[in-house]
Amino acid sequence: MQDTQPDRHALRGLMRQRRRALSHSEQQLAAQQLVTQFKQHPDVQAAKRIAFYLANDGELNPLPTIHWLWAQRKEVYLPVLHPFTPGHLLFLRYTATSPMVRNRYGIEEPELDVLQVVPHSALDLICTPLVAFDSAGNRLGMGGGYYDRTLACWHQHRLGPKPLGIAHDCQQVDAVPQEEWDVPLPQLITPLRCWQFS
């Protein structure tokens, strides 16, 4: 799954620069607004097990939302790079006391513990980070294809956890160039809006 379109590469660079340009106060406000959006989202209210991510490279910070989910007694899981299957993710239970390590991308993830792994099919929602999105629900990721592989079964058969994109409002573009393996999102949350695509 290597990008073959140079415009995807250029767009990825532009949008990463755009979200990194947000000030600290803008990031803090966006993180609090995300909590507000989650509080009123019906799929979130119904979910018991929710996979999230930890912010990197200017991504929308989900930690205030994760703390709110914990207060609602919902289980939170984080992606961990699969140690034996390149390009794939495992999901581990994440709590306030989870021992953390940095993966090869420099992103914090829970230390691998097989007792904390849950099959991704047992999750209710997978909150996916992204670099850019458009009004049709097309998503541009970082280029590794990790979430496209994770969500392929849902995309093809509507089985497994429902994806929920998470992004800053400034990450919207007119059109995301598509590749055949891309998994469009059925819904997405930004600080100012909840998008429903299908």
Rank of each mutant, 00 (worst) to 15 (best):
L188F: 07
F197E: 03
M1K: 07
C153M: 10
Q172S: 07
L140P: 02
V176E: 04
P62G: 07
L125S: 03
V118I: 14
R18D: 04
C170E: 13
L130A: 00
Q37F: 11
C194Y: 13
D57M: 03
D124Q: 08
C194A: 12
P64K: 10
T4Y: 00
P6F: 08
Y94F: 15
A132W: 06
I66Y: 02
Q156I: 05
R12K: 11
D174P: 07
E109Q: 15
Q32L: 12
L188N: 01
A122R: 10
M1C: 09
C170M: 09
L22W: 06
V35T: 06
S135P: 01
R19G: 09
M142K: 08
C194S: 13
P99W: 04
W154L: 04
D113P: 05
A10S: 14
Q172P: 08
Y53G: 05
Y147W: 01
Q187H: 12
I166F: 05
P177M: 12
Y94N: 01
R149N: 03
N61T: 04
L81C: 10
I126G: 03
I50C: 03
G87T: 03
H9D: 11
Q28R: 05
P177F: 13
Y94Q: 01
L115G: 14
M142R: 11
Q156G: 01
R20Q: 15
G137P: 05
V76P: 00
V173C: 00
L164R: 03
G13D: 13
P184N: 04
G13F: 01
S135V: 09
S25K: 10
T4E: 13
D182V: 13
Y53M: 09
L92V: 03
H155Q: 13
E108D: 13
C194E: 08
D134M: 12
G87M: 02
Q178M: 15
V183R: 00
A122F: 10
Q72W: 04
T190Y: 14
T95I: 02
Y146H: 14
L54D: 08
A21R: 02
L192F: 01
A46S: 11
A55G: 02
E111H: 08
V131G: 08
P191F: 05
D43Y: 10
H9K: 14
Q45G: 09
F52A: 15
A31L: 00
Q2R: 14
T36A: 12
L192S: 15
W154D: 03
Y94V: 05
V76S: 13
P177L: 09
E179C: 11
I189L: 15
R20W: 07
G145M: 06
D7P: 00
V118E: 10
C153K: 11
G143V: 01
